[in-house]
Design a binder for these strands. Structure first.
Lengths: 193, 193
DNA sequence: GGAGGTAAATAACATTTGTTAATTAATCAG
DNA sequence: CTGATTAATTAACAAATGTTATTTACCTCC
């Protein structure tokens, strides 16, 4: 039963049965294979993605073609194309499955329509934005307050699962360094700590 | 008349007269002198700040006492203590007037109460969060996709007023570099461009 | 098992930044 | 206007990162 599955997400845990049913009516299940491209630059990807299993990486391309990982979302997280969701514009990002994924896709358009009519859903929208905002502020702090080495150390402390499950080349750009530099940082930390 | 003044802010431009009156009823004017500390770490600063004039800098202290500028908000921007607003927790940030400021202070508590009752205000809350979120994503991109030199070049291009009005020591930590490094970057750019 | 391909580690060198200190420029109070 | 204070620049050196290339490890596919 889908409503069971929605309980897996903190954001949906306080919905009434009737609201869960409404949410379910605008949702569908989907799976992605490891390495699969979920959305790409220029796409309108009109779904909110609630990740039941797996990891989804968001990246952008620099002008020289280099990939830079902007977000990493894991089981229990909710993600989306940010330009599609907030500005109703084509994506500037690429979304990619880092592992085999099981997700719930929630129609953005239907969700927004629901949010306009139903105050519970508008409130949900609000909570979701606040969660994202707190994450984003934390990530800005991550860059502004810490050196690359401190960033890796914090990731090691707070998100060891990411380090286990995400290839270093992606972690590197998530931390804002090259793979070579990340490799050196790892060596320094393993030698000292 | 306050409702005139609210029109200065993009976020409030589409409010009806009656909603403007409600907004006005939970707002008051305030001024800050250049250098004045508006809120500090540990404070509960329960106001949304709409800046009519001036610049407000948000910073945090590293463990070694170094200041790091996390946000810069100018005339027309809306800012607040992020922990106070979103998590209802004491501030982790310091807010400081970089110039003499004229602001509107909107009571957070009353605003949130209004947002619970009145769908227009909940919707306003939503739009405000989306604006902040878009800014935050842009700022993350700023760090992930660009070198310090590119960041300064972009600031020069997109926000020349900030470079004019904000002392370099604050700009430096806003860009994620030291004052010495910013000085070198400026020299390199002025010699090449 | 072996060939091919990708990821990660390592090496060598250029570039940039951080750090500390000294100098110059700008600002403020009296 | 002047002395004192702070901001910004410059200099010199250490440390970290970026870049390119090479080596090693690992994985997949045949």
């Amino acid at each position: 039963m889908l409503s069971q599955i929605f309980q897996f997400f903190k954001l949906f845990r306080h919905l009434s049965l009737s609201d869960l049913a409404k949410l379910q009516s605008i949702s569908r299940m989907a799976t992605y294979k490891e390495g699969e491209l979920i959305a790409k630059h220029g796409d309108r990807f009109p779904h909110i993605i609630a990740i039941r299993k797996g990891i989804i990486r968001t990246y952008e391309l620099k002008s020289d073609g280099e990939e830079r990982t902007t977000r990493l979302a894991v089981d229990g997280d909710i993600t989306s194309c940010s330009a599609c969701f907030m500005a109703n514009k084509p994506s500037e990002e690429y979304l990619e499955a880092v592992e085999d994924c099981k997700v719930i896709l929630i129609s953005m358009d239907k969700f927004k329509r629901l949010a306009k009519q139903n105050i519970h859903f508008m409130s949900l929208h609000n909570e979701g934005l606040e969660d994202s905002m707190l994450d984003a502020i934390e990530r800005i702090r991550f860059f502004i307050m810490m050196t690359p080495e401190e960033r890796y150390a914090q990731l090691l402390r707070k998100s060891p699962h990411l380090i286990q499950r995400v290839p270093q080349k992606y972690l590197a750009s998530y931390l804002g360094v090259t793979t070579v530099s990340l490799s050196r940082i790892r060596k320094r930390i393993s030698e000292s700590g």
